[in-house]
Design a protein around this nucleic acid. Structure first.
Length: 808
DNA sequence: TAGATCCTAATTTTT
DNA sequence: TTAGGATCTA
């Protein structure tokens, strides 16, 4: 036992040891970036287990599934799988869902309630707005949802909402007085459908602990120790749950970094961490200030910046590494040049320091900035990957099949019902749908139940439509009955087949059709691999416990719950991350690290973002965001800014970000103040396309220009042979001709039957190209054509295309 | 019913 | 600029 404990403490520094060793009472661990936060947290859990605490009495909460999985793995390595897996380790949402299922009936939900993801919520709100006959231009579903979400996270139920004058007055001022009605209707719908959204999980957990003392008693008694990761990002709702659950033992350990609180816009309360010691005056405070990730210059630069924030806990981080290079500034005319300079910087570093592409990250404040960067990376054949939105689960076909899954698990889910009732088309058109919705509303039931109403004819439904609707619901009902008995994979396949969705996409031979089919298959196979994972887990468990039990059926509802709580990055991770430059927003970079980091778009109005210039608390959040960006870098950090940038179709000229000046100039290679002002007194210099040219090597070279100083500090390229003004001559999708290539009057389009695969053709708009493939039946023949001036082949519907054989 | 066309709005995002 | 949506039309 002691030996194991020794092993846990081995390799920890003194602060880390102290933080791990102090198991009793409230503990606040302020963990600077790169200070070994996860290690401390996992070691604490391991140490608790070594001390003999029951694994199932330890509750460890994280924000992302990824963090939970990672910690679980690390704990397993320390104390063995057997004990590690019994620890209550998971995201706030996944853990609370387990409690809520237990007590669902008390709260008026079926214990089989399902979860709405954000897009479900938005479309539910949309139908509420419609139902209340409000204008969705004023009541924008996304905004309304955000408002409701904010309310829920502050435990303001719809009833409370309408009685709070300060809220309703605010809504009237923004000319949206009926948000409270939308809120109420939305809540009603969710209940009726047996559905909770993400915020409901926290809200209902609070209601459960508040109104049902026996539930509070029973749940809180299960745990002797509670640990919370990323505490600076908790919202009020989460804060209160944690507080209540740890009420008796007060063995609550929270870990976080107030300097990295960047989610206030979605309800995170930095006060939770700032005021922790007010709630728990006896709390022990541990600071992890030793940074193992970054060089001295980077850590010092970050410190000097965050020092400008008033609202923070005192902390002095320091690097244990070498001083390293100073921070580089990259100045450019516009975002294209910025991108080119960054990519050449990457290529340079790869060459000189034999770095790998995977060592680089390019960060930006807004997703839109990735475009220019991608283009530059593509042109130089640098492999890259973008971390962003839920690309896979956002695809229409994936959403469709997911909606079928959800509907089968919970036929009362109206959003899913609406999504797939006519997909593939079953002749249930808009009119029938509207009538059914009216029926459901009048009868006060869900769409699914309404289909079986005797009174449908009264609502204007034709009997033919009723037959079709019943065929649909019968099919769903049949599948529903299989949920409990069938394993998820078999059921998923059945759903894909019985619904006709799979066939529908498979019969579409076009390129998109094939891609869609592949995505459907991918989703089904992800069900399969989920089952495999669970099986492997189960077997490991059996082996560890030396027992032999029957493998339980892994059901579709279980899969669904896990998938709906899965973050995008979790999935992206599985794609080959190997040796690619990473592109992402600063927000999504939190928790990651890269030896070489470029932060692009360091300009006023962009970073700090224009919307946040008003209040000082917003500016502080932006500053923390920049702090996060800086501290991602291990070896080298470059900050780039452009003189002008195209944003929302307009060119903006913004000065370099104030944040650059806020960094102590000692840590910057060529600080702004020491630079000569380009073009002299106040004169701005416009970027014209022919100022950036490319030499033979394909590297950017700045052309001499009167308004420019002899030698730019940043364009450190030799000003050798500059010949090809690239931007105009290099065809790219964005440089696509808007008009026609040929004279429309004299362009004789050939009939579609005259084209053959492999033929060279000319398209009125897209110019010359070659037909790679023809598909589809006669009036709808599609051609896949590679145009000489476009990198990607296009699919063209021939009946609309103005095209002829290539003229020689 | 799907493709074409028009219009509008545009930080950040986990669960 | 451009993406997403709503609306129009073959």
């Amino acid at each position: 036992m002691e030996n194991n404990a020794d092993a846990i403490f081995e390799g920890l520094n003194s602060e880390q040891r102290n933080a791990v060793a102090c198991l009793e009472g409230p503990v606040l661990i302020i963990a600077g970036a790169g200070s070994g936060k996860t290690r401390v947290l996992t070691s604490r859990v391991a140490y608790l287990l070594e001390k003999g605490f029951d694994p199932s009495s330890i509750l460890c909460l994280t924000f992302t599934k990824k963090a939970a999985t990672e910690m679980k793995e690390r704990i397993s390595l320390m104390v063995g799988e057997r004990r590690a897996r019994r620890v209550w380790m998971g995201t706030f949402h996944s853990v609370f869902i387990r409690f809520l299922r237990e007590y669902a009936e008390k709260l008026g939900y079926p214990s089989s309630f399902t979860i709405y993801d954000t897009s479900d919520s938005v479309s539910a709100i949309k139908s509420c707005v419609k139902e209340l006959q409000l204008d969705d231009k004023i009541y924008k579903p996304k905004e309304v949802l955000a408002r409701i979400s904010m309310a829920k996270n502050n435990l303001i139920t719809d009833q409370v909402y309408r009685n709070r004058s300060e809220i309703t007055i605010e809504d009237s001022h923004s000319r949206k007085p009926r948000i409270c009605d939308i809120y109420s209707l939305y809540v009603k719908k969710c209940r009726q459908n047996g559905v909770m959204d993400f915020d409901d999980i926290l809200l209902n957990m609070n209601i459960l602990l508040r109104d049902f003392p026996e539930a509070l008693e029973s749940i809180s008694a299960r745990f002797t120790h509670i640990l919370v990761d990323e505490y600076q990002d908790t919202n009020f709702s989460q804060y209160l749950i944690i507080k209540k659950l740890s009420m008796h033992h007060r063995n609550i350990c929270v870990v976080g970094d107030d300097s990295q609180s960047i989610y206030a816009f979605r309800g995170a309360k930095i006060e939770n961490i700032l005021n922790f010691r007010k709630d728990y005056p006896e709390a022990r405070l541990f600071k992890l200030e030793r940074n193992y990730r970054s060089t001295g210059n980077i850590v010092n630069a970050a410190n000097s910046l965050i020092d400008k924030n008033k609202n923070r806990l005192p902390k002095e981080c320091y690097s244990v590494g070498e001083e390293g290079d100073k921070i580089k500034l990259i100045k450019s005319y516009n975002e294209q040049e910025e991108a080119v300079l960054i990519t050449s910087g990457i290529l340079d570093t790869v060459r000189k320091e034999s770095a790998r592409y995977q060592d680089f990250a390019i960060l930006y404040r807004t997703n839109a900035q990735s475009r220019a960067l991608e283009e530059a990376l593509r042109k130089r054949n640098i492999p890259y990957m973008i971390y962003s939105g839920n690309s896979f689960f956002d695809r229409a076909e994936v959403k469709d099949l997911m909606a079928y899954f959800k509907l089968v698990v919970n036929p009362n889910d109206d959003e899913s019902f609406k999504r797939v009732v006519n997909k593939p088309t079953r002749g249930i058109g808009g009119t029938s749908e509207d009538a059914l919705a009216l029926a459901a509303r009048t009868l006060g039931c869900t769409l699914f139940r309404a289909v079986y109403s005797e009174r449908l004819l009264e609502f204007g439904l034709k009997s033919a439509a009723i037959t079709k609707l019943r065929a649909f619901t019968d099919m769903i009902d049949r599948l529903s009955r299989l949920v409990v008995t069938t394993d998820a994979e078999t059921l998923a396949k059945r759903i894909a087949d019985d619904s006709g969705l799979y066939r529908f996409y498979r019969e579409d031979n076009s390129i998109e059709g094939q891609a869609r089919t592949a995505n459907i298959e991918e989703l089904v196979s992800s069900v399969a691999s989920y089952i495999q994972d669970r099986k492997a887990e189960f077997e490991a468990e059996q082996e560890a416990e030396g027992s032999t039990g029957e493998m339980p059926v892994i059901r579709l509802d279980e899969f669904l719950e896990n998938i709906s709580l899965l973050s995008n990055i979790d999935i992206e991770d599985e794609e080959d991350t190997n040796n690619k430059v990473s592109l992402m927003t600063v927000h999504s970079s939190k928790g990651l690290e890269f030896p070489y980091v470029y932060v692009s778009g360091m300009e006023e109005n962009l970073f700090p973002s224009g919307g946040s210039l008003a209040s000082s608390s917003d500016i502080e959040e932006e500053r923390r965001l920049f702090y996060v960006a800086i501290t991602r870098a291990g070896r080298k950090l470059s900050l780039s800014f452009a003189d002008s940038r195209m944003r929302n179709g307009k060119t903006e000229n913004n000065s370099p970000s104030r944040f650059i000046r806020e960094i102590d100039s000692r840590y910057i290679e060529n600080p702004l103040d020491e630079q000569r002002v380009f073009g002299g007194g106040g004169q701005t210099f416009g970027f014209s396309r022919n100022t950036t040219s490319y030499g033979q090597s394909g590297r950017p070279v700045r052309m001499p220009r009167q308004t420019q100083p002899q030698q730019s500090q940043y364009g450190s390229r030799p000003s050798s042979a500059a010949t090809r003004p690239s931007v105009q001559t290099r065809p790219s999708a964005s440089a696509a001709p808007q008009g026609n290539r040929y004279n429309e009057a004299t362009f004789n389009a050939a009939p579609m039957s005259s084209f053959t695969i492999g033929q060279r053709i000319e398209h009125l708009r897209f110019g010359p190209g070659m037909i790679l493939d023809l598909s589809g039946r006669v009036p709808d023949v599609k051609a896949k054509i590679r145009f000489d001036d476009f990198p990607e082949p296009k699919i063209i519907l021939l009946k609309y295309a103005k095209m002829r054989a290539e003229q020689k």
